[in-house]
């Protein structure tokens, strides 16, 4: 027990990312409103993106932008002085895919509303069962 608490505190950011991820998963499973489910899906996505970006952080490193411009004198680039830009590039794609997913999900929710006149899951299921 005495060595468990410092282990948790030292990696506090990972615990908060997992908390956010579980909040999103709970909303996707347990919430009754379709828009609330979509908000939960977005929270889940951003929690995973947050986890991946935090992997690339280094202590004492600067942002991955080269200071020597085009045509300037050639400088020696030390890779250890910069953050790891690979997770950033991958997660940039994930954000754009996420907003496309959000648009499709909201369009489906609009179609469901125009047909059943409600956004609540239990009312939609009751109307489907009645037919």
């Amino acid at each position: 027990m005495s060595e468990l608490i410092p282990t948790i505190i030292a990696k506090y950011n990972y615990w908060i990312y997992i908390t956010l991820m579980m909040i999103g998963l709970y909303a996707m499973i347990a919430k009754n409103n379709l828009v609330k489910k979509i908000v939960g899906m977005n929270i889940f996505q951003t929690a995973i993106i947050l986890f991946y970006v935090s992997i690339g952080v280094k202590k004492g490193a600067t942002i991955p932008i080269s200071t020597g411009g085009h045509g300037a004198a050639h400088e020696v680039v030390h890779a250890a002085d910069y953050l790891n830009p690979l997770p950033h590039v991958l997660m940039l794609t994930a954000i754009v895919v996420g907003v496309a997913t959000l648009g499709v999900a909201l369009a489906l929710a609009l179609r469901i509303y125009s047909r059943y006149n409600t956004l609540e899951e239990d009312e939609i299921l009751a109307q489907i069962r009645k037919k």
Binding site: I49, V53, S54, G56, V57, A61, I63, V89, I95
Partner: peptide, 13 residues
């Protein structure tokens, strides 16, 4: 965290 490109994409998108 130093991910400036991800930050401004998130701010706009």
């Amino acid at each position: 965290m130093g991910a400036v490109d991800v930050a401004f994409t998130e701010a706009s998108v």
